[in-house]
Amino acid sequence: MPFKLIVNGREHTLDVEPDTPLLWVLRDELGLKGTKFGCGAGLCGACTVHLNGQPARSCSTPVEMADGGEITTIEGLSSDGQLHPLQQAWIEQGVPQCGYCQSGQIMTAAHLLATHPSPDREQIVTAMTGNLCRCGTYPRIVAAVESVAGGVGQYQPAGEGA
């Protein structure tokens, strides 16, 4: 049964089994490898994307539930070769160690800033604490989010409800 997804502004029709997690559709059918597999059970956040403006764990989202939805992945966060301010901050603050969790971290942070442009530290921690980082980059993540808090206006996750 074909499904329709609008990913990073482009429409795709996909013929996959309905229970296929969105994660594997993005990675293997659409070649968007920036979204990572960490636990497959909604426990780590490595696979976080935006689905209709909300952060979603793509490993635990069957593609049928995303049918017709608008999705933003890490690849769609920057526009016209312009890095998202969070990505810029991540680079400036030298956040990534192994880097594997960072797509998910950035996607969660991007949603936070889109909905709360000037979060305080507690709001940042509350929003981010579901994203695990085995390398322990948490302090630099907080610093990076704080460095752009208040300064992000241009990026809005695609779809309603943001």
């Binding site: 490898k33 920036g34 990572k36 890095l83 680079i91 603050q93 990534p96």
Partner: peptide, 21 residues
């Protein structure tokens, strides 16, 4: 500056083993 691999790891373009195609 920053870690030299920070950009690739902040844009989802760094290729890990799991990303090989």
């Amino acid at each position: 500056g920053s870690r030299l691999d920070a950009e690739a790891k902040s844009t989802g373009t760094a290729v890990y083993g799991i990303d090989v195609e």
